[in-house]
């Protein structure tokens, strides 16, 4: 592992997130961080394991409702709510994972989509007595102050979200550099050959599935705590493509992709919705244009240009140093 590159990447991610707070309104910055955590799981599944999932909102809802049920009915500590959301994500991923990861990528996409629809109707109709259907669960006033960082307050929630986002990013960076990360990529490239080496591709895919969806559930629980409200809209069939679109928009497979994609997508949404009535239509056209202009996504297109600029700047600096020392 290239330690220098690792730390360089961390610093860059840290700086990027810090900039959010300085230049952007607090709700917008919080939204971007949570959305980045949401998308990073999808990015891992698509870029590392080769699974396209149109069911990520299902796991987002599992995490959100896990936290919401606790905070509405049982307790007031937001940290505990988030932990329950994570636990719900693990349980649901382990329950459906052994069935889903056996499927090929196209069927995997559809079966996850079906799960998102099932959870949507469960929350909207079947469990309406406890979820309050479309009205949702409101519990912002239930939240008590939490120790160390009072995450019931938006400004302190930002620091918490920032640290969680940072930890999630570092965790995925660690996975990418680990043997497990190589196994995930290997199973995407050629599953059979991985078996010939003595690995169970099923176990690798299942673990990757659980990790990715638990991350998504974490984002869901954070949404719940931040907004103090959860409704079935979180897993609406109209939103199932969001994380896949943002993953591709940011750049599949790169850890910077989800952050860049989330900033671009949330930014576009925010800007356009303030200015135009039918802003979704404009976003649709913009996305088509961005995909056609650079099919590697924003980060995939920018990265080689930035590298080239960096190398050129370093070469110029080295030449200037040599010139200075020879004089």
């Amino acid at each position: 592992m290239n330690v220098l590159r690792w730390w360089w990447g961390l610093l860059l991610a840290f700086a990027l997130l810090a900039l959010l707070r300085v230049f952007l309104p607090l709700p917008f910055a919080n939204e971007i961080i949570i959305f980045s955590i949401y998308v990073i799981g999808c990015n891992f599944l698509l870029g590392r394991v080769g699974f396209i999932s149109f069911g990520q909102p299902a796991y987002l809802a599992v995490g959100a409702y896990g936290a919401a049920f606790y905070l509405y009915y049982f307790g007031t500590n937001a940290y505990v709510g988030i932990l329950i959301g994570i636990a719900a994500g693990i349980i649901v991923s382990l329950a459906v994972g052994p069935l889903f990861v056996r499927l090929r990528s196209d069927y995997f996409a559809l079966v996850n989509l079906a799960l998102a629809v099932i959870i949507y109707y469960l929350m909207q109709k079947v469990l309406a007595d406890i979820t309050h259907g479309d009205n949702g669960l409101w519990f912002l006033t239930n939240l008590s102050s939490t120790p160390v960082l009072d995450i019931s307050r938006p400004d302190q929630f930002f620091i918490f979200a920032f640290l969680v986002g940072f930890a999630v990013w570092a965790f995925y960076k660690y996975i990418d550099d680990s043997i497990f990360g190589a196994c995930c990529l290997a199973t995407k490239i050629n599953e059979d050959k991985l078996r010939f080496l003595g690995y169970s591709s099923f176990n690798i895919r299942l673990l990757a599935f659980v990790i990715a969806n638990t991350t998504t559930a974490l984002a869901g629980a954070m949404y719940a705590v931040y907004l103090g409200f959860v409704s079935p809209e979180i897993t609406s069939p109209a939103r199932v493509a969001d994380p896949v679109v943002v993953t591709i928009l940011g750049g599949v497979g790169s850890l910077y992709g989800p952050i860049v994609g989330s900033i671009a997508y949330t930014g576009m949404k925010d800007l356009l919705s303030k200015t135009f009535g039918n802003w979704e239509l404009i976003i649709g056209f913009l996305l088509v244009f961005i995909m056609l202009a650079g099919e590697k996504g924003i980060w995939g297109t920018l990265e080689p240009l930035l590298k080239k600029a960096f190398l050129r700047a370093r070469a110029t600096g080295d030449a200037a140093d040599r010139g200075g020392s020879s004089r």
């Binding site: 190589a182 290997a186 059979d192 050959k193 010939f196 690995y199």
Partner: peptide, 22 residues
């Protein structure tokens, strides 16, 4: 297959396809 590989019986396929991105 992976259990048989674990027993020390390794198959080297003919297509020479390695894990190209690694």
């Amino acid at each position: 297959a992976y259990v048989i590989a674990g027993l020390g019986i390794k198959y080297i396929p003919q297509d020479k396809k390695v894990f190209s991105d690694l």
